Simulated scan of single mutants.
Amino acid sequence: MTARQAVILAAGRGTRLGPLTLDRPKPLLEVGGRPLLLHILDALAGAGIERCTIVVGHLGDLVEREVAAAGVPLSLAFARQEALDGTARALAVARPLLQPGPFLVTWSDVYLEPAAFASLLAAARLPALGALLVNPVDDPWAGAAVYVDGDMRITRIVEKPPPGTSTTPWNNAGPALLDAWVWPFIEALQPSPRGEYELPRALAAAVEAGVSLAAVPVAGPWFDIGTPESLEAARRYAEARRRGKVRP
C-alpha cells in the first residue's frame, strides 16, 4: 500500500540556532527565499502525499498562520505538542488525526531534494514493514548509526554512539515510512538521558524486536538544520541550485 499521508514534526525550540528562533520558529526560517516548512510541504505533495498533519509547539500559532496563508496543495491538519518532551511524543500527538495505513514522518529541520521523499515512499512496495532514510557520513556519532545487511535491511540502530566506535557509514537521516506497528514501541519508551522520548529509540527497539525496516539512501544532499552553520550551508546550496550550478 502506498502512503498518502504524512506527519511533520515542527514543535521544537531550535535552541542551537540562538537568536534566530527567538521570534521566528525554526520551520519558518528561509532557505532559498522560502520557509523551510513550505519546501517540505511542496516536496511531499510532489511525491504523492495528499494529507499532512503538522505537529507544532514553539510559536505554533505563527506556524499555523503562515502555512495556512501559503496555499499549499495538501489537505492540512495541525496538532499541538504542549510539553516539548521528544519526537516520539510529538508523533503520538498526531496519531488521532491519521487514517489507517502507512504514513511518512519527517522533521521540519531536515532539508532534502524532493526526490528523497519519493524514494522513501517507493520503499512501501518492498517486502518490509517500513523504511528509514539514511545518509553516508564519516562517523555517525552525532546522530544514529544504522547497520544494514547485504539487502539494505536494517539490523541495528545505535543512537548517539561514542565517536570512533561505529563500523557503519550510515546515519539516520530522519524521515521514515511507518505504520501502526510503531505505536507499541512508542508507548513502551523510557526517557533518554536528555529526559526526552525520542523516535529513533523507538525504531531501534522495533528493529531489535524483529520489525523489518529497509534503509533507503538519501537521493541528493542532506542538511540537518540545527545550527547557524548548517542553515548557512543549506542556503548556499539552495542558491547554487537556483543559479543552475548544481543539479538536484
Rank of each mutant, 00 (worst) to 15 (best):
L231H: 07
W183K: 04
V218K: 00
P228V: 04
F223E: 11
L177N: 11
T227F: 02
G195C: 04
R236S: 12
W181F: 10
R242D: 08
P193W: 01
A188N: 15
G195T: 06
W181T: 11
A240W: 03
F185S: 05
F185A: 05
A215K: 14
S230D: 10
E208R: 12
V211E: 15
R243E: 02
S212P: 11
R201V: 11
A234I: 02
L178F: 13
L177W: 05
L189P: 13
V211Q: 06
G226N: 10
W183I: 01
G195V: 02
R236A: 15
P191V: 11
Q190S: 03
S230V: 01
A180L: 11
E229P: 15
L213D: 08
L199K: 00
E187Y: 11
L231D: 12
A219M: 15
A240K: 05
P217D: 12
W183P: 00
P191L: 00
V218A: 02
V216E: 02
Y237T: 06
A233N: 09
L199R: 01
L189C: 15
P221F: 08
I225Y: 02
Q190R: 00
S230L: 04
A219L: 10
Y237W: 14
W183Y: 03
L231Y: 08
A204G: 07
F185N: 02
L178Q: 11
W181I: 08
W181M: 08
S192L: 00
I225E: 11
P217H: 04
V207A: 14
L177P: 13
A219I: 05
V246W: 09
L213A: 10
A206C: 07
L199P: 02
F223P: 10
R236Y: 05
A205M: 12
P228R: 06
A240D: 07
E239H: 09
R242T: 11
W222E: 04
G195M: 13
S212M: 12
K245F: 02
A214S: 13
W183A: 03
E229W: 04
P175Y: 12
S212R: 14
R243N: 11
G210W: 14
A219Q: 13
R236N: 13
D179H: 12
A209Y: 07
D179K: 02
L177F: 09
T227P: 15
G174V: 10
A234W: 05
